[in-house]
Design a protein around this nucleic acid. Sequence first.
DNA 1: CAAGTATTACCG
DNA 2: GGTAATACTTGA
Length: 733
Amino acid sequence: MQSSQRYLHIAVATPLRRTFSYLPPTGIADEQLQPGQRLWVPFGRQRRVGMLLGLSDHTDVAAAKLKPVQGLIDDTPLFTGAQLDLLKWASDYYQHPIGEVIATCLPAELRHGKAATISATYGWQYAAGDPARRPDRRAPRQAELLALFEQQPEAVLTASDLSAAGHDNCHGPLRALAERGWIRRARVDAPQAAPAELETPLPLNAAQQVALEAISASLGGYRTHLLDGVTGSGKTEVYLQSVAEVLARGQQALILLPEIGLTPQLVRRFERRFGTRLGVLHSGLTDSDRANTWLRARAGEVDVVLGTRSAVWTPLAHPGLIIVDEEHDLSYKQQDGFRYHARDVAIMRGHRESLPVVLGSATPALESLHNADQDRYTHLSLPQRAGSARSPAVHVLDIRQSHMHGAIADRFMNMLRDNLAAGRQSLLFLNRRGYAPVVMCHDCGWKAECRRCETTMTYHHGRARLACHHCGREQPRPSTCPDCQGTLIEVGHGTERLEETLAKQLPDARIIRIDRDSTRGRGNLEALLESAHGGAADILVGTQMLAKGHHFPGVSLVGILEADGGLFSSDFRALEHLAQLIVQVSGRAGRAEHPGEVVIQTHHPEHALLRTLTEHGYGAFAQAALREREQLELPPYSYLALLRAEAKQLQHVSQFLEQARDCLPRQAEVYALGPVPAPRPRRAGFQRQQLLLQAGDRTHLRRILGNWLQDVEQLTSSKKVRWSIDVDPQELG
DNA sequence: CAAGTATTACCG
DNA sequence: GGTAATACTTGA
């Protein structure tokens, strides 16, 4: 009797929305094959890493096409069944091919087939070299590095230690130093040196105690808590003590942050509290560090994992709790490829793995507040902590017909002048970097535009160049109009120009500008923030970056110079984001004895929701905004999916989207809007359009999407465009 | 006609 | 996405 043939169903990292059937590898018993293992598979003409998803006695594929697996990578599964189920759910929910979903969730080394073993990390250690071959004046970087090693001759410093110390890309100088015998390669032994003294927990106030008790009581089962508390209300201490409870139960905790680079203080607080039990995942790590932390968490060797969006996929041997800090932050939504939302994945993961999830924010997303209102989440509020900064007073400044000094209205300039005279700091927020967003000919009206994007190019004074903020293209600024040789003028104001205006109007003020241009390079942001803290600046000027993470107790006057964009945007979420920004920026300033003032410059001081925000606070704003969303049937009262497409030729794009729309099932309770031009209709030489699907019911939308996209994929017009589907889009652009 | 390049098909 | 076969340019 011949035993029935077994078929392996395997995911491969490819944009194809299906799995592939293979024959078992020769010489491997069926019992050795388990879902979750990686294996080498022949794929087309290549050899690729595949992930075994299942085994069965049937396949729809013709026997002639089947090939045997070439070999196993993992003897035991890399993922548990529960983890695979989460990945399959994500693939289905976000309508992204399973192979790519798995690939984006794996650290690069494992994605490329490296064995799942925790490797020793290597670094460099001081060695007494030949004094005659000491790096001299010609090798300043080597000398700098050598000085660092000499300070701690016993220490083994890894690439990430060095980059933390401000030495990036020092591979070359290190090799040279090693060549001269001044340092040598050395293994880092696991628990490095003696663990520093760990900080002890701080006493909690009543509200923090209530929150901690609610979270603790829910350990061991699924529950989502919305921890709603302004800056300085002590959210972090609640996180820290909840995590400590999880560790005491022998379990692990996962903490997600929007951007680690912007919140070094928070990371350090976790380090001080948990020492070597903490693993941090961030973009500055080498692939090998990243894979090691991931594998350590999976093996239960690391108990607390702190990371950004992609850390939500880190496997945990004994998962106990997930925390999503600043849950409203847009960076949790991946904006290309596999467009998942880490906060929503965290909640689904908590649900499936039976663990509580804590969403923390001073300005929760409207979706999250709605879920709390519906009692799907526990709403935990932390009021202002006694003795900490009081909320600053918020003023809406009507700048209609005002005399302007650049981006600053006359009245506000006077406030800045007074604040400066009083010896206090001010913070100005303008979400546009560069000098001026438009360069125009005063004689003929010609504008400097990006050829590929049809948007105006921003003038950067520092570099004396024009840059397109959409595609990154740069070119020198012409001195005269290329059409008529007329005079060129700068129109509009960016942070660079704002800095210049301030320097002219307030010549005594010391100004620090913080944006992507001024903080290029590692450590620069921290250095600038430090000097701002140390009182080296009277006025801080910056973009979005200023609103995140850092608190400036010395600041008593905050200006949001351009609020109008958020009031009347085509994106329905713009107002929510503006409100969050206003509250977040306000929270950056002030101290107990001087709560400070926030000024919002606008041409629309009568805007009802803006008034609600400034007069009654974020909670009242959110409720009013939710009522508006309900009337307009927008999320969270409806569910959206966005089909985007781009191609060099507009007609290919519109033809594809029209055909896609026509593939939608009739009478389905899903409404298609479009195709319409994308908010940025041209980018990098591509024409972009989109088709928005709206449904009143989430399961309805989900059911339709799968079959629909299969049809869409079959369209011949789909091959002439680049298309993608975005489920729960955050930005309709 | 060779060489370069856009288009298409396919991956088990 | 990657690869390769095919169809279709271009230039001596």
